[in-house]
Simulated scan of single mutants.
Amino acid sequence: MRTPVVGLLRAAIVGAEFAPGERLVERALCDRFEVSRTVVREALRQPESEGPVDMVPHRGPVVATLSAEDAAALHEVREVLEALAGRSFAERATSAQRTTLKRRLKAVESALADGGLPGILAAKDAYYDALSDGAGNPVVRATLLGIHARTSLLRGVTLQSPGRGADTLRELQAITTAATARNPDATWAAREAHVRSAAGVAMGVAMDLLRSAADKAGTA
């Protein structure tokens, strides 16, 4: 039971159903997911270790608040690592892995057309997984997974920003074209541009979320 609840909880946080700094009340989560308190406590451990949930003394679990400075630092590191993974894919990926990447891109396109945030995030994660598989660098893969987990709230809200879906698709198409053509430099540039574009939107989102959290704290 724990694994499905972890996924549901993560999706709710990414979908901005909980605000940064908001307490995750165990009883309410039990009612929401129709599970026991033990299951909820177990489920909270994974997002706490990943970053989206903080355990605050005397308050319990709360949705993590990511400062603008932290968001900028994470995207700076993500830009280099994703560009490196893209270049490595272009250099190392097998024919089967290139075919998988093209298929995953079509899945992203379908998910964006459907418009459901959980489906879009799942399709994008699968696309990134395909790039990581072809890159063949487990250290880069693990580090990127941690960064994606820490910026999960921003990723969800950013994708809902006007025009971001269309921009995302164009950027992933450019990455796929370069990567499957075995062009390392073009793949590096395309993936670097994708992260910079996302970071530009995410920084505005981060500031909005921080202001919203401050406003709520001031009226509490």
Rank of each mutant, 00 (worst) to 15 (best):
L145M: 10
V195A: 09
L209N: 06
R150G: 01
E17V: 01
F33K: 08
D129G: 03
D129R: 06
S161A: 15
G115F: 06
A181E: 14
R10H: 09
A193V: 05
L84W: 04
L145H: 12
A178H: 02
A71R: 07
A19L: 11
V195S: 01
L159W: 09
H194W: 08
Q97F: 06
M203Y: 04
T158E: 13
S67E: 03
M55R: 14
L81F: 11
A122C: 07
G136H: 04
H148D: 13
D129C: 03
T177K: 11
R92A: 10
V6M: 05
V40S: 08
G21Q: 06
T65D: 01
A113I: 07
E22Y: 05
C30F: 03
V56E: 12
A64M: 09
R150N: 00
T38S: 15
E76G: 14
M1K: 03
E109W: 06
D31R: 13
V25F: 02
A220V: 09
L112M: 10
R10Y: 03
Q173W: 00
A135S: 14
E91Y: 02
G86C: 07
W188E: 14
R27C: 00
A206W: 06
W188Q: 09
G156T: 00
A11F: 00
L154G: 00
V80F: 10
E42F: 06
G200S: 05
A73W: 14
L121E: 12
V63P: 10
A28M: 01
R87N: 02
L172E: 07
L66W: 04
L172H: 11
V53F: 04
S95M: 12
E82L: 15
D31H: 08
L74N: 04
R32Q: 14
